[in-house]
Amino acid sequence: MRARAEAKAATRLRVLRAVLELSEEKMTIEITLDEVASRAATSVQTVLRHFGSRDGLLDAAVALASAEVEQERRAPAGDVAGAVEAVVAHYERRGDFVLRLLGQEHDPRIAAVVGPGKELHRRWVEDTFGPQLQARPEGDREALADLLVVATDLYTWKLLRRDRGLDRPTTQSRMHAMVTAILAGGD
């Protein structure tokens, strides 16, 4: 019984990984159940048995990716260097993919993914820089959080890394300088 449960869980994870891999290669709307099943070395029927529908499959893939993103971005509260390092590493891994998603956010399914992602980023800023935010007068915290959101945003990484062509250490250093300047200057 235990072996069967482990095999079922492994198949489920293989299918979810297949969806995530395919979503890095093409627009989500273009992904078919046949492609997912083929990539996961299983059948469409097995995919449907696990997830019920294509929508159920995509919802489960979003949930898995969201959990992984939260883990990747984890940094000790108040650790500016650690926070910037974590977010840049996250963008190095997933940034181009998320930029493609943002380009599709007119699709309601994609909007349902990127909307919570934007909220996650704001929460990450508020949690990660919580000690610095709490040290400020209450009226200044929201403005300061706004500035920190921008300084650590995916589009900031894109402007430096992709548009300017800077290497990872320079990008990280410039984002760190922005965060440090924001924290030193208040709002």
Rank of each mutant, 00 (worst) to 15 (best):
T170R: 11
L58N: 00
V114K: 14
R93M: 10
T128V: 15
Y91A: 00
D55Q: 07
D153E: 11
A89I: 03
I110S: 05
L148N: 05
W124M: 08
A81Y: 06
G78K: 04
P137H: 15
H121Y: 13
D163L: 15
E138T: 12
V88D: 02
G103P: 03
E119I: 07
F129M: 10
T28Q: 13
T171G: 09
G103V: 04
A143Q: 14
S38A: 13
R162Y: 08
V84W: 03
V149A: 13
Y155F: 14
V125R: 05
L58M: 12
R168I: 05
R73D: 01
I29T: 14
A89T: 00
Q71T: 13
D163N: 14
D107T: 03
R161E: 05
A143P: 11
L57D: 00
I29K: 13
A65L: 10
D96G: 00
A37N: 01
G78V: 02
L57S: 04
A111G: 14
S53T: 09
V149I: 14
D59S: 10
G56A: 08
R54E: 03
E85Q: 13
A63W: 04
L147S: 14
G52T: 02
T46A: 14
S38M: 09
T32N: 10
R168D: 07
V150R: 11
R54F: 03
E35F: 13
A86S: 12
P76K: 09
H50E: 13
E72R: 15
V47W: 12
G95Q: 00
A61L: 11
F129H: 06
A40F: 07
H90S: 01
L99H: 00
T28E: 09
V84D: 02
D59V: 12
R74K: 09
L99I: 01
V114F: 09
D96I: 06
D96H: 01
V69F: 15
R162L: 13
E138Q: 15
R49A: 11
L64C: 03
T32R: 12
L58P: 01
V88N: 00
D55T: 09
S53V: 01
D153H: 15
A61G: 04
V69W: 12
M27V: 06
R54D: 04
A40P: 13
A112C: 14
A83Y: 00
R123N: 08
S43D: 07
R39N: 11
